[in-house]
Amino acid sequence: MARDASLDFALWVYLTEGPLLWLTVTLAAYAVADWLSARAGRHPLVNPVLISVVLVGGLLLASGTDYATYFEGAQFIHFLLGPATVALALPLWEHRALVLRSALPMLAALVAGSVTAAVSALAVAWAFGASDAVLVAIAPKSVTAGVAMSITEGLGGNPALTAVLVILTGMIGALVVTPLMNGLGIRDYRARGFAVGLASHGIGTARAFQVDPVAGTFAGIAIGLNAVMTAVIVPWLLRIWLS
C-alpha cells in the first residue's frame, strides 16, 4: 500500500524547518565517530572530528540540504566553542606550577612557531603561484577561526576562504602530530601540546586532550597566545610581502 506522499512531504518540511533533525544527526554522528576512535585506541588517523564531518557532510549532500539549514540545528553545538575556550582555565589552573615554570620555553616556541606558521604558508603558496587574495587568506591559517577571519577581513581578503583553510589546518595538525612527535622522539608533553595548539588551534587541542592532559593544557595556552601574536605579526608581514 502506497503511503500518502503529501504526508511524507509534510513530515520532511517539519523536520527541516526546526533545529531538531540536524542537531540529532550531529550528535549521533559524533557518538559513532567517538566510539570508532575509542575502539581504535585513539589512533591518530581515526579522528572523531574528521569522521563526524564526513558522515554529516555525506548526509547533507545526499539529502540536498544546504549548510544554512544544517547550521540552524548545529549552531547550538557551535555556540559551545566559546564556553569551552573559557573552560580551558580549569586544566591551566590545575597545572599552574608547571605552566609558570614553562614560561620561557613557551615564549620561544610562540615567537618561532608563529612566524614560521605565517611565513611558510605564504612562501609555499607564493612558490606555487597563488594569487594575492589567496596569500591574504592563508597567512593566519593556524589561529582560531574567529581571529583568523577578522585578520583576513581587516586586510581586505575573503574570510570564508580563511575559515575553510583554518579548519583544514586543524585537521592536518590533529592527524599528523602524534606520528610526527613520536618520530622526532619528543616525550615532553608540554612541548608536544604547545606545538599542536599553536599550529592547529582547537582541533589540534582536542587531539592533544585525547593523548595527554598536560599536552591538552599547553595546547589551550598556545591557542590564546598565538591568536594575539598572529593578530600583531600577520598584517605587518603581509604589508611587506605584498608591497
Binding site: A87, V164, G216
Partner: peptide
C-alpha cells in the same frame, strides 16, 4: 565541555564540505 571538545568542531568542519 572539555571532554567533548572534538564534537564542538563538527558544525564548522561540515562547513568545509559545503565550501
Amino acid at each position: 565541555l572539555l571532554a567533548h571538545l572534538s564534537l564542538l568542531f563538527v558544525p564548522a568542519g561540515v562547513g568545509v564540505v559545503g565550501n
